[in-house]
């Protein structure tokens, strides 16, 4: 590579150690904060997952019993199943919807700027507020509307149906997550040079062909980023589920983050620390995957 790195430049002028020290000094505050607020608690959490601690008082080591109990607990396994399935569906819904909306919002239409502002609005409302509003709509407005129109299957609240409550959560989560995804897609689509489209138009490519052969490949990096960041965020879902179903009916919509947090408040500290440890390693695996697949491609 012909690129000259800063250290190579500086070697000619200054002693390299001096520059290094400055770099480290810049890193230090973040490093200290990160260690104290993230690394240390994580290590302590992993430590406690091998004990029977409730968070305070006496405790002793119980080995890997928490982990054994974890893998035979249908509620916890159900939470993993629900969270991963829900994340996959939501990622698909959010990205397809946001991509199509972004195409609409970058095309030549009237009131483009006002529409963009309108579509981005849900981003500024807190998740728990959105959840409570939708909770009311699903529990009261929608059933009443359904019975007025004579649609029998929707007369019962969606949130009270153990088999369908997850659909409501997908809808609300998508409603909140689409705006930020749209913004990234708009940036991606606007970054495509217009001469590519002009050339395609001259060659007689249809609109659909242009979308499939130009827009999609040239925004591949953005799609990848949105999918991975979205998936990671949905795995951590908490506030919207609490506001909509609180994990119910039964335990059908309890997410991993909810079961971990409930453990902390319900005296099941070390058990849920074991759960958190497993979840932590899953998150690391996803982060490594993200680094691997976005290397190079994200700069498209």
């Amino acid at each position: 590579m012909a690129v000259v790195t800063p250290s190579q430049v500086s070697r000619k002028v200054h002693k390299p150690q001096r520059v290094g020290a400055t770099y480290y000094a810049f890193l230090l505050p973040v490093l200290v904060l990160f260690s104290l607020a993230i690394t240390l608690p994580a290590i302590m959490g992993i430590f406690y997952s091998f004990t029977n601690s409730v968070g305070f008082g006496d405790y002793y080591f119980i080995g890997v019993i928490n982990y054994i109990a974890l893998f035979s607990d249908p509620t916890i396994l159900g939470a993993y199943g629900f969270t991963i399935g829900f994340s996959l569906v939501t990622v698909a819904v959010v990205n397809v919807a946001a991509f199509l909306l972004a195409i609409g919002l970058t095309s030549r239409i009237r009131g483009k700027v006002a529409l963009r502002a309108l579509y981005v609005l849900p981003m500024v409302v807190s998740g728990i507020v959105i959840a409570y509003v939708f909770n009311f709509l699903f529990s009261n407005s929608l059933p009443e509307l359904a019975s007025a129109l004579g649609i029998a299957p929707l007369e019962k609240s969606l949130l009270a149906n153990p088999d369908l409550a997850w659909v409501a959560i997908v809808i609300v989560t998508a409603w909140q997550a689409i705006p930020s995804t749209i913004l990234i897609y708009i940036a991606g689509i606007l970054a495509i040079p217009s001469d590519v489209y002009e050339a395609a138009a001259l060659d007689g490519a249809s609109g659909a062909r242009q979308l499939w052969s130009i827009t999609v490949p040239l925004t591949a990096g953005y799609i990848l980023i949105n999918v991975i960041i979205g998936f990671k965020n949905f795995l951590n879902s908490y506030d919207i589920i609490v506001g909509l179903t609180n994990g119910g009916p039964g335990t059908s919509t309890t997410s991993i983050a909810m079961s971990i947090f409930n453990g902390f408040t319900n005296g099941d500290y070390s058990y849920q620390m074991a759960n958190a440890t497993i979840f932590f390693f899953i998150a690391i695996a996803i982060a490594l995957l993200q680094l691997r697949v976005t290397r190079g491609k994200a700069s498209v």
């Binding site: 249908p74 153990p162 009916p249 408040t265 099941d268």
Partner: peptide
């Protein structure tokens, strides 16, 4: 029942019509 067991959620599913035995086994 220790609060680590989500008994209120289990009771809710029985009230909503789940068969009691599988829930109680859980």
């Amino acid at each position: 029942i220790p609060s680590g067991i989500p008994v209120a959620n289990y009771a809710q599913s029985i009230a909503l019509g789940s068969s009691p035995i599988p829930v109680l086994k859980q």
